[in-house]
Design a binder for these strands. Structure first.
Lengths: 348, 348
DNA sequence: TCGTTTCACTAATACCTATTAGCATCTGGC
DNA sequence: GCCAGATGCTAATAGGTATTAGTGAAACGA
C-alpha cells in the first residue's frame, strides 16, 4: 500500500500513473463499455492504480459535470432543539428517512442554520447543496419561500402553505376531512347543537382548514357557534354558555383547550361524554396528561414525511412537473370523550 | 418578477444581463470590497439582476473552486430501521446534530446505502459528498474502514475500533474505567468475592474493555472467576456456583444477563443486594422491564456523538492532525441492586 | 493493394465559481 | 508635462469530472 497522499488523488493523477488519459480513467470508473471500448488489460491497469492510491471521485466535480447528487435537503424554520421541538419534528424526519432510503437518496439536514434561520444568506442558499429540499416548520418566512420558488429550486413544503404569486408544492394533512367526519359523528350520535372552539389565531391555515370541515358538516343542521378564545381563563365562561345554549357537543381545535373544557365540565358536574361530548382536533406532541382517552384525530406526521419525500423526488426526476399539492388523510381515534347524549339532554 | 428560468441562472448569465464580467458578479456576491473595488452603481445593477432572476450560487461549483461545503456525513453499518435499531442510533444522532449545529456544519445522513451496505461501490464512495464522516455501527466491515483510512478521507469512528496498519480516529466510551469503579465499589462495600459474567463473544472490543476494568479492580483482591455463557439457560447453574463459591457480588456485562441472574437469585430466595449484589455494565436500549432500579453504568451515547463530531471538525480544520482516540467517561447509576453484603454472608 | 470496418483510445470542451495579475483611465502633486 | 497612486473593472486560469467527435492502427475482404 502506497503512502498516504498529501491530497486526494484526482483522475488526472491516476491517468498519469496508469499511462492513459483522464478520459479513460473516467470511462473505466463508470464502466462505459457500451459506448467506448477499453481493453481488459488497460482496464485492469487503471483499476489497480485506483485501488493502490485509494482514488475516490470528487462528488462536487461529478455534480458540476453531470448535474445531480441524489441528495434531499431537510430545512426546518425553527432549530430542531430543544427537545420539545425535536418531538414535533421526529416523526416527520422518520418518514423522510425511510422514503429517502427506499428511493436511493441521502438526506442532508441543514443544522448549521442556527438560531436566526434564513434560507438565503449572502445572496446564496445552502439548500442548493442538495438536489431539492423538504421544508417544514410552524412559522415560516413566506418571502423566503416565494424567493425560493422563483429561483427554480425544487422543494416541497410539509403542511398547507399558500403564498402570493405562483403556487408552491406541499403535502398537507387533511384536517378539513377529518374535522368534518368527527363533527358528523357527533350529529349522528344524536347531538343537535355542536360548537367549535379554538384558542388563538383564527387566520392560520391549519385553523381555517379545520373550521372549514366543521362548517361543511354543520351546513344542513342547527350549527352551534364558532368561538375563538384568547386565553384559557375564558373556558369556564364558554362552558357556561354551552350549557345555556343547549350545546351537547364541542369540537376543540387544540388538545390543551380540550383538557381545560373537560376540567370545567367536571367542575360543573357535567358527565363526559353524555352531558358534553368533546372531540379534539390535534394530538399534542408534548402529551403530558395521558390519562384521558380522547376522541379525535391523529396528525399523520410520519406518512406526511414519506409523501413529501416521494413528491419531491417526482419533481426532481420530471422537471416539467408543475407545483403539486397532496393531502394525507388523518386517522380518527374513537376514544371515550364522544358518545350519545343523555336522553332529555336537549336542554333548550 | 421575471418568468421562471428554464434552468437556473449562472454567474455568466447575470454578468451578461448586467453588462459586467463574471468575475464582477462573483466579487459583488461575495462582498469582496477589501480586495477589489466595485462602484456603488455597478454593485446595485448586479444585485438587481441577481434578485430579478433569482440567482443562487451552485455549491458544487463553489466547492470545486474553493474546496469545502461544511458538511459532515453520518454513515451507519446497519440500516437505521427497524425502530429497535433506531433507538440505538438516535441518541448518537442527537449529539451529532447538536454539535454540528454549534460548529456551523450540516449533516448528511447516508440513507441510500440500503440493505447490503458498502462504503465503496463502483470504485467511489458517496461519503466523499461530505467533507468528512462519522461512522457507527455494531458490526462494521474492517476492510472498508482500512480502505477509507488509506484513501486519506477524514473520518471518526464512534466506538472503540482497532484495525490493522495505521490507526484510525475514534471516540469510545470508557467502559474500562466505569467497570473498574463499579467493581471497586463492590469491594469497598465489603464484598470479598466478586465475579464477572458475560453472555456471548469474549473477543469483542467492548467486552474486553469491560473485563479489563474488572481485572484492574480485582488485581490485589481475591478475585472471583470470569464466566462466559453461551445462553441464558446456563444462568441458574451459574448462580448455584456463585453461592457455593462464596461469591456475593457479580458484575454482569449485559442487562439481559443481569435480569436473568436476578430472577434466578429470587427463585433461590437470595435477597438482592444483600445476599447477591448485581452491577450491570450496559443499558439495554430496548429497556423493557423498567421496574428494577439497576446499579450500573450509562453509555454516554449523546455525549459520544458530540465528541466524535468535535474531533472530526478538528481533523477537518487541521489536516496535519494524525489519528486521535478519545474516551468519554460513563456516568454511574447508584441504583438498588448493589449494597453491603449481609453480615456473616461470607459463605465459604 | 485498396477500401472499409473495427478497435482503442485521446484532445478538447462543457459544467460554474473564486481568484488575481494586468490594464485603461483619471486625478493630484511636483 | 510627467509620474505615482487611486479607481474600477476584466481576461485568464484553476479546481475535477463526464462526454464525444476525431484519429491512428490493425484486421478483413474483394
Amino acid at each position: 500500500m502506497s503512502p498516504r497522499p498529501a491530497r486526494r488523488p484526482t483522475q488526472a493523477d491516476i491517468a498519469r500513473l496508469a499511462g492513459v488519459s483522464q478520459a479513460t480513467v473516467s470511462l473505466v470508473l463508470n464502466e462505459r463499455d457500451a459506448d467506448v471500448r477499453i481493453s481488459p488489460s488497460t482496464r485492469q491497469r487503471v483499476l489497480n492504480v485506483m485501488r493502490e492510491w485509494g482514488y475516490v471521485a470528487n462528488p462536487s466535480a461529478r455534480s458540476l459535470a453531470g448535474g445531480h447528487n441524489r441528495i434531499i435537503g431537510v430545512y426546518t424554520f425553527e432549530p430542531v432543539f430543544p427537545t420539545t421541538s425535536h418531538d414535533f419534528y421526529f416523526p416527520f424526519l422518520l418518514g423522510m428517512e425511510q422514503e429517502a432510503a427506499e428511493l436511493g437518496y441521502d438526506l442532508l439536514l441543514f443544522t448549521s442554520a442556527g438560531g436566526g434561520r434564513q434560507i438565503f444568506r449572502d445572496g446564496s442558499t445552502r439548500l442548493a447543496l442538495a438536489d431539492g429540499a423538504l421544508l417544514l416548520g410552524r412559522d415560516p418566512n413566506l418571502e423566503e419561500i416565494e424567493r425560493l420558488r422563483d429561483s427554480g429550486y425544487p422543494f416541497v413544503y410539509v403542511g398547507h402553505r399558500e403564498v402570493s404569486g405562483a403556487p408552491v408544492s406541499y403535502v398537507a394533512a387533511d384536517y378539513t376531512g377529518a374535522t368534518q367526519q368527527l363533527t358528523e359523528r357527533l350529529f349522528e350520535l344524536g347531538h343537535e347543537r355542536v360548537a367549535y372552539a379554538r384558542l388563538g389565531d383564527a387566520d392560520a391555515l391549519p385553523s381555517r382548514d379545520r373550521e372549514k370541515g366543521f362548517r361543511r358538516a354543520a351546513a344542513r343542521r342547527l350549527a352551534g357557534p364558532v368561538w375563538t378564545l384568547e386565553s384559557l381563563s375564558e373556558v369556564d365562561g364558554l362552558v357556561g354558555e354551552m350549557v345555556r345554549g343547549g350545546v351537547t357537543g364541542v369540537v376543540a381545535e387544540q388538545q390543551l383547550l380540550a383538557e381545560e373544557i373537560l376540567a370545567c365540565a367536571r367542575r360543573r358536574d357535567l358527565s363526559v361524554p353524555e352531558d358534553l361530548s368533546i372531540a379534539v382536533l390535534g394530538d399534542s406532541t408534548g402529551a403530558r396528561g395521558g390519562e384521558t382517552d380522547w376522541t379525535g384525530l391523529v396528525v399523520p406526521r410520519e406518512h406526511m414525511g414519506r409523501q413529501a419525500t416521494r413528491l419531491l423526488v417526482q419533481l426532481l426526476e420530471d422537471p416539467e412537473t408543475t407545483a403539486q399539492s397532496e393531502n394525507v388523510s388523518c386517522p380518527l381515534t374513537p376514544g371515550a370523550t364522544v358518545g350519545p347524549p343523555t336522553e332529555g339532554t336537549s336542554r333548550r
